[in-house]
Design a protein around this nucleic acid. Structure first.
Lengths: 123, 123
DNA sequence: CCGAGTTATCGTATTTCGCCGATGAACGAT
DNA sequence: ATCGTTCATCGGCGAAATACGATAACTCGG
């Protein structure tokens, strides 16, 4: 039971603080087609249509560095639930995930966020 | 089959073009509380999370004012379905409806739209 | 008052969402 | 090779969303 042999404190250290997702500075390509623009905005809005997902996006936006599954620690939800929220955000293109060893590093897709802002602004 | 020799175009002769909704210039009060802001943005985004509702909002933004019947004509959906989408938008505060005789005049709530834009911009 | 026209609501079927615990897959370290 | 950590996926459940037709409610003109 109590075996912990002087656990090295560097256990929790991760060096992936540097970067996970390249800039990806893509211009917000607003679709010309009306119906397509509606569908795009609807998909992005739907992805944000849950407080937990808004919180995730805010969390990723606040930290410069992309956090991994520490998101689970910040939300009062089970790990599997958070994972599904992340999958939904990823499906909508709002975030991207990069495998970094055993973890996955998530970060905002700035292009998608810019597109969302442009579409909302154009209402 | 072909029928209706008389013009089917004379079915609409409204004159309630005036306007229905007063300005409603409300400042976009962004909630200070983090969780509340998340919930507010999520609710607004959820209301926009369907192409038909985006189309409705765009339609109302383009025209000064609209009536439910015209919206039904623009969308490939049944009247009851459109009415439910309108109810959802109204519940989220994005639009307002004012009874004008036998019809209902819907219009955007500029305050809510401004709040949405502010919340999205603040991502 | 009674039709005609317009919108809201009801009832219902199908699909999707949101949540969880449990299990599986991938990786680093031992 | 095995273990521990991390994350995704599966199965299941209840709730909500989406769609439609049918029907009620409401207002105006005759």
């Amino acid at each position: 039971m109590n075996d912990l042999p002087t656990a090295p404190t560097s256990r929790r250290k991760r060096k992936a603080e540097a970067r996970c997702c390249p800039p990806s500075e893509v211009a917000p390509v607003v679709p010309r087609d009306r119906a397509e623009a509606d569908a795009r905005l609807a998909a992005l809005a739907k992805a944000l249509g849950h407080p937990a997902r808004v919180a995730i996006v805010r969390l990723l936006a606040r930290r410069e560095t992309c956090v991994c599954g520490e998101i689970v620690d910040e939300l009062p939800l089970a790990q599997s639930t958070v994972s599904q929220h992340l999958a939904q955000l990823k499906r909508a293109g709002l975030i991207r995930g990069e495998v970094d060893g055993p973890r996955v590093c998530y970060c905002l897709d700035e292009g998608a966020v810019a597109l969302l802002k442009a579409l909302v602004e154009g209402l």
